[in-house]
């Protein structure tokens, strides 16, 4: 069997507060394989970014990993020190965030940043690095890359900047890339360009990608598998077509149903009552139970359901068997 590039096992992140301990990430497990895009989807505050930041060693105090493992190509990384982590970020892990400016240094030209990263992580000469930097910019579709290499980040448009960030994330030839809402700030036409680029480059190079987004459409088009998060927990995990067309978790079902596309032609959209609970006020049992149409007594009192074995798709005591959602077109 192929070894996953990233393997998360029962990851728990906690934040101690005066009012008690919060768990923004609770028992999250999944693998990402070479050349695969795993989509992480969920509403804001579900714990998507927190999971990603835990994986790449960027949790901000006082949040910390309290249990579980994170393996990068088989090697544990959840217990690395900050300085050890700095060595693998950029080299073994590429990063793309919503705001390209968080990944770029405004005082250096894009060429300087690419060359610096390439030299730091690959054993090549300055001249070779320069050529690679130009090739990297060409590959992400920056027109006239050789001339533009001396430009500063602010001299690029938002879409072009995100292309530079992708070049930067991939230039040290990482095995794993995390992309946290990479197109959320972009217009749809540019979003389509960036998603197509990300898909192509990762497939070609066999990079495993964790694609965090709140947009189900982006997930459908880009991801191979999808993990749905709710209130810090994995609600559902599976092949993207299975999860989106025949969701087993009532939350996924509700989420899909409430998109205008799924309710096409209906006068009113389907809706999920209420909203996601705050971490400090999680209900007992299944975190979704107050909003769930299928909730039974055990859901509200028992322990919370988790995805325990490899084959289970949904963290639910009563996974939906029947449902085929209305097809969207």
């Amino acid at each position: 069997m192929v070894q996953p590039v990233l393997s998360i096992k029962s990851l728990v992140v906690e934040i101690p507060t005066r009012k008690g301990v919060l768990r923004p990430v609770d028992q999250v497990s999944y693998d990402i394989f070479p050349g695969e895009i795993l989509g992480i989807v969920g509403e804001s505050g579900a714990g998507k970014s927190m999971t990603g930041n835990a994986v790449i060693g960027l949790l901000e105090r006082p949040a910390r990993i309290v249990s579980g493992n994170v393996l990068l190509s088989g090697n544990p990384i959840h217990n690395l020190s900050a300085s050890e982590f700095r060595k693998i970020r950029g080299k073994k892990i590429g990063m793309i965030f919503q705001d390209p400016l968080t990944s770029l240094n405004p005082l250096l030209t894009v060429g300087e940043q690419l060359v610096e990263t390439i030299i730091e992580h690959l054993a090549v000469s300055k001249k070779e690095a320069q050529e690679r930097a130009i090739a990297a910019l060409e590959e992400v579709g920056i027109p006239a890359a050789r001339e533009r290499i001396g430009s500063y980040p602010h001299e690029f448009s938002g879409g072009m900047r995100q292309r530079v960030v992708i070049a930067l994330a991939l230039c040290a030839e990482p095995d794993f890339v995390i992309a946290d809402e990479p197109t959320t700030a972009l217009d749809v036409s540019v979003q389509a360009q960036i998603i197509a680029l990300l898909k192509r480059l990762c497939r070609e190079r066999g990079v495993g990608v964790m694609l965090v987004t709140h947009d189900m459409g982006v997930i459908a088009e880009a991801a191979d598998r999808v993990a749905v998060m709710y209130a810090g927990r994995l609600a559902e995990l599976g092949a993207v077509r299975d999860v989106l067309t025949a969701p087993k978790h009532p939350y996924t079902y509700g989420l899909m149903g409430s998109t205008p596309l799924a309710s096409r032609g209906l006068k009113r959209l389907k809706q999920i009552p209420g909203s996601m609970p705050r971490l400090g006020a999680l209900p007992e049992g299944c975190a979704f139970s107050p909003r769930c149409d299928f909730a039974q007594e055990v859901c509200k009192t028992g322990s919370s359901p988790f995805i325990a074995d490899e084959d289970a798709q949904a963290a639910c005591w009563f996974p939906l068997q029947h449902t085929k959602l209305r097809s969207s077109k």
């Binding site: 979003q191 998603i195 459409g217 998109t259």
Partner: peptide
């Protein structure tokens, strides 16, 4: 360009 829910 708009992403589709069935655009697998």
């Amino acid at each position: 360009a708009a992403p589709r829910l069935d655009g697998f």
